[in-house]
């Protein structure tokens, strides 16, 4: 078994929360052999990815980073978040 733990700091608690909710709902591909758990505390997004093989872990981590980078770019370009009503 192979495990990766990632910790990503964001400029604000709100932005970390947005990233968490954007990324947490997708399940891993059913034949991917990996499992992913996300959590958020204050301004830090934490990710744990577990895989049976190193190759699967690498694919999953790479894919997650692609989507994380996309979320960050979206936050930068179309943020900041409007205040909740």
């Amino acid at each position: 078994m192979f495990v990766a733990n990632l910790s990503v700091p964001f400029p604000s608690d709100k932005e970390a929360e947005i990233a968490y909710h954007s990324l947490r709902v997708d399940v891993e591909p059913s034949r991917g052999g990996t499992e992913k758990v996300l959590s958020v505390e204050e301004n830090t997004l934490s990710v744990k990815i577990v895989a049976k093989e190193a190759r699967q872990l690498r694919v999953s981590v790479n894919s997650f980073f692609d989507l994380l980078i996309l979320v960050i770019k979206t936050l930068e370009r179309f943020g900041p978040p409007v205040d909740s009503k």
Partner: peptide
């Protein structure tokens, strides 16, 4: 296709939250 669908959905989710 799985990966293209998710790539677009992530942006939609993000702006939905940004814009409330």
């Amino acid at each position: 296709m799985g990966a293209p669908l998710v790539s677009v959905a992530v942006v939609a989710r993000t702006v939905a939250q940004l814009w409330n």
